[in-house]
Nucleic acid binder design. Structure first.
Lengths: 215, 215
DNA sequence: GATAATACATACCGGTCGGTATGTTGGTCA
DNA sequence: TGACCAACATACCGACCGGTATGTATTATC
């Protein structure tokens, strides 16, 4: 196993475990065991658990970013972009019902760490701002095409969307897998309402986002 | 100090500390120290840390409940109810900027505990359902009075509001005190949009919720 | 083929955590 | 007034956690 591969396995494993549980209760030992790496290997690649988390976040964001760029590509109409984003958010990489909302690890970690670890907080804040930025692009795209009601403070609406998605992650987790189908439908209506999408465009495109094949 | 008082001090202290930080990183020792109670006292009143948290949640909810009942009292018009709820949610009991959203301890704990502690999860799920129930009352009240656009699936909208509030808590915490004023305004617009409140009623009442005097 | 740096592996450490065992005290009631 | 019990206080435990010290293969460099 190459050094690069070892590092990536640690990143992926950490994210998966934290996704399924949470930052605090996932220990370094557990990450190592699951990744098939020893503690020496771990601390060879990462200064600390916090450093690993930050690296994993950025690693994960790079993936998300690529997909979002594809979703928001100008080849898609604004309505398709919207539907794809909704589908994308719901997409559940790890198959765990309690974590159906993409980005859940960031959102949960934000509430977990509190004010304890400034390093992680900074990292999460950056992620949060990144999410808002992409939402902003979506809002502007829809607004410019005249799909939205009334005046639109695009920055605010983008923030509202981010806040809503964060809440979804928590809600879905607390309420367990029983609410999965419900939440799936909630996302759509939540987005439509927060955006102020004109009623005639609700549920019109039915695009369903597909995870692009990995390189 | 009476037994009842000791118990209440533990409940209040636990909630405050967890509110400011989070469930995992607040230890029993810290709670005891802050409350001026020894560990013996703690385990005399509570079986475990998890039991304390659940009791504290219920204790806290009883307070919230009283206030919400007042806010949603029929003596207030539906629009006043709405504005009061918005003000109520933002109200910051402990003065910590990162936790301006009332209910934050529940929301954060929900993401913290993951699937580890079923007991806490159950408690949080109940809280979540309670919140939805109160939102439902608000939605119905507004809907019946004709303030909302289009068809209203009241249950869904109530859920959307709960999800949004949960997200706000996380967003505010991650983004720190710098975003406090912004978030304050976001709440209002988020509620208006999720409810589908008719535009002519936006920002009309300007009611500001006041914490009722304690008995 | 010698040297050195990389990439781990193993064993271990100090500290903290939730929880417990046991001692003490003040009020209650017979 | 003495038995009794709730309501604590103190001391302590084993488990676990993040992190480190040190040893050992493997690979690159000259």
């Amino acid at each position: 196993m190459s050094a690069e591969e070892t590092r990536n396995r640690l990143l992926d494993t950490a994210l998966e475990l934290i996704w399924q549980s949470n930052y605090n209760s996932v220990g370094v030992n557990e990450i190592c065991k699951q990744a098939g790496v020893t503690k020496g290997g771990f601390y060879h690649h990462f200064e600390s658990k916090a450093h690993l988390f930050c690296a994993a976040s950025e690693h994960y964001w790079e993936n998300i970013k690529r997909d979002l760029d594809a979703v928001l590509s100008p080849v898609n109409s604004p309505l398709e972009q919207l539907e794809n984003v909704i589908g994308f958010i719901f997409h559940n990489k790890f198959g765990s019902p309690a974590t159906c909302v993409r980005g859940s690890p960031f959102f949960s970690a934000g509430l977990q760490t509190g004010c304890d670890e400034p390093m992680i907080n900074d990292s999460l804040q950056k992620m949060s701002q990144n999410c808002v930025k992409y939402n902003l692009a979506l809002v502007r795209s829809l607004s410019a095409a005249g799909y939205l009601e009334g005046d639109v403070d695009a920055e605010r609406v983008a923030r509202l969307l981010s806040q809503y998605v964060q809440g979804l992650a928590g809600f879905a987790r607390v309420n367990g897998c029983a609410c999965l189908e419900t939440v799936r439908k909630d996302i759509g209506e939540g987005f439509y309402r927060l955006l102020g999408l004109k009623r005639q465009y609700w549920f019109t495109t039915r695009a369903t986002w597909q995870m692009p094949a990995k390189a």
